[in-house]
């Protein structure tokens, strides 16, 4: 589940492949300033990949260690 609260994008529970589109729309709209993965259990590769590409800071890493590890070492966000 992906939702925008204020200017923060929240990823919650499981985020299947379709949600990549929603996330992209939110990122493209430019209203969001950060991402919160606090309640996120799992993400599909498409969503994960977009998180890597997203030019926004991640406020809270997901509780799942593998995912958190991969996102913590996120290379410098892509396109400016």
């Amino acid at each position: 589940m992906i939702r925008l609260e204020g200017t923060t994008i929240h990823l919650e529970d499981a985020c299947p492949v379709e949600e990549a589109e929603r996330l992209l729309e939110l990122l493209q709209s430019g209203t969001a300033t950060g991402i919160d993965l606090d309640g996120c259990r799992s993400v599909h590769t498409a969503v994960f990949q977009l998180l890597l590409a997203a030019p926004l800071p991640i406020h809270t890493l997901p509780p799942e260690p593998m995912l958190a590890g991969l996102l913590a070492g996120r290379p410098s966000p892509g396109p400016a």
């Binding site: 492949v17 990549a20 589109e21 996330l23 992209l24 990122l27 493209q28 498409a46 977009l50 590409a53 030019p55 396109p79």
Partner: peptide, 8 residues
């Protein structure tokens, strides 16, 4: 770039 990004 995000504008041309293909999410799938």
């Amino acid at each position: 770039p995000l504008a041309e990004y293909d999410p799938f």
